[in-house]
Design a protein around this nucleic acid. Structure first.
Length: 417
RNA sequence: GGGGGAAUGUCCCGAGCGGCAAAGGGGGCGGACUGUAAAUCCGCUGCGUAAGCUUCGCAGGUUCGAGUCCUGCUUCCCCCA
């Protein structure tokens, strides 16, 4: 495993980050000789990144940890076009305002992982809109278009699959590849950036960038991708009850984030600890070897470590404590998600189904009733099978709240105000 | 420009004689079993307390009645030019 000379590639390799690399040996030599600069691009398609982006963020994290300079490329320009890679249909185009606001939401996450600044290995954040939007059409075509052949572009899986499935690909989307390649070349010229990383689906796009950079700048350039991540049972990573596992606290609370990792399948514990935490390898090897129920301890440590990286030490501790009280001691913690409901409404008595819908546990009264019928709704730990039953102030417990649970893991405290 | 085909349950795939709230999957959620795991088994998966209401690309029409037939439109695919 430890066949590399550079710390950077050794860490990536033993932790399982490497799927493909354009020239691992040469990159290794370069990285062992001194700090290198690498980047990853993020398009602003949502207001927060999610767990699916985490592997790539960790890549930047380790790049910096091992003494190199990471660049976070915000895709302000490329988002205007939309990445067609491995998508069946074109995404709706976002307005400039949406893109800007999404970028603002995304930026903050990186502060938890990287140290930004002007030093040699300090992280940098740039926006490709700064150079991409400035090009004139003909200028762009003459400068870069001449280096790409349609023949070649059509052979990339990302494009080929779309065509094979007889789905349309617009000329706009077709150009995404070029823009991403231009990014790499631009960063190489400006910051001497020699490495682009990304998920395995980005391989084609990355290779284009590597080639364009070599050709136009006559400099070494490398690409490296991470494996496509699925859970041991084959599900795609990053989905949970409420939707995606967002990294921003306002999109998904640290408690829910902690829970996501706590619920990891046994078979994934080791893999996830390698990829999503900075726990030392010795520790990981010890933890993943735990058998049976003991592996739950490992899952807690995984959840702690993963949450700490994103939300900080304090939030991780609180989440852990809250979960421990709720699941292991059966005690309520005031830190559980709490929703305030007008006291008058409870005084009058509110239908359980209406209540769960109001506090966001269910989407409609009908859904709530069906859930209740199946035994999936609990008020103060008692299953209520009739969704029409009224919830009133009489249901307040000693702490002055009503504990409403959907299933075993989604718990909300209702507080009268 | 000509010809042929496609669009189905606000997650996806996908059946659908003129009587359909619409087969079957997948996914998701809930229950049982467990260890807040996996596997397995069971249930639910348009809205409404209900009467009922609203769904099959869009707009009209035929019919007691249309996802299903007719007309126009939109979008997409394929073939010919």
């Amino acid at each position: 495993m430890t066949s590399f000379k550079s710390d950077f590639l050794n860490v990536l390799s033993e932790r399982g980050f490497i799927h493909q690399c354009t020239d691992a040996e040469a990159l290794d030599t370069l990285a062992s000789a001194g700090p290198i600069t690498g980047y990853i691009g993020y398009d602003a398609t949502a207001s927060s990144l999610h767990a699916g982006h985490l592997v790539q963020i960790m890549l930047l994290y380790w790049l910096q940890k091992t003494g190199n300079k990471p660049i976070v490329l915000m895709g302000g320009g490329t988002t205007k076009v939309g990445d067609p890679t491995f998508k069946d249909t074109q995404r709706p185009l976002l307005t400039d305002e949406q893109i800007q606001s999404n970028m603002n939401g995304i930026k903050s996450v990186f502060n938890s992982f990287l140290t930004f600044g002007d030093g040699a290995t300090d992280a940098l954040m740039v926006n490709n809109d700064d150079w991409l939007s400035g090009f004139g059409y003909i200028e762009f075509l003459r400068t870069f278009g001449t280096h790409f052949t349609i023949n070649r572009m059509l052979t990339f899986d990302s494009v080929k699959l779309r065509l094979e499935r007889e789905q349309p690909m617009t000329f706009l989307e077709f150009n995404y590849m070029l823009m991403q390649a231009v990014d790499f070349r631009e960063l190489n010229s400006t910051y001497n950036c020699v490495l682009q990383m990304g998920g395995s689906d980005q391989w084609g796009n990355i290779v284009n960038g590597v080639e364009l950079t070599r050709r136009l700048n006559q400099k070494a350039a490398f690409g490296l991708t991470t494996p496509l991540l699925t859970t041991a049972s084959g599900a795609k990573m990053g989905k949970t009850v409420g939707g995606a596992v967002w990294l921003n606290a306002d999109a998904l609370s640290p408690y829910d984030y902690w829970q996501y990792w706590r619920n990891t399948e046994d078979a994934d514990v080791g893999k996830f600890m390698r990829l999503f935490t900075d726990l030392p390898m010795d520790e990981i090897r010890r933890l993943e070897a735990l058998q049976g129920a003991e592996i739950n301890e490992a899952k807690k440590i995984l959840a702690d470590a993963a949450t700490r990286l994103v939300h900080g030490e304090a939030a991780a501790a609180t989440a852990r404590d809250t979960a421990q009280k709720a699941f292991e001691q059966g005690v309520l913690s005031a830190d559980l998600p709490t929703v305030e409901v007008a006291r008058a409404e409870l005084e009058a008595g509110i239908m359980l189904a209406a209540l769960t819908t109001k506090i966001g546990l269910t989407q409609s009264n009908g859904e709530a009733r069906r859930l209740a019928q199946g035994g999936g709704l609990r008020v103060n730990d008692t299953a209520i099978t009739d969704g029409n039953q009224a919830v009133t102030l009489a249901d307040l417990n000693a702490d002055g709240v009503i504990k409403v649970a959907q299933g075993k893991k989604k718990i909300v405290l209702v507080k009268p105000v």
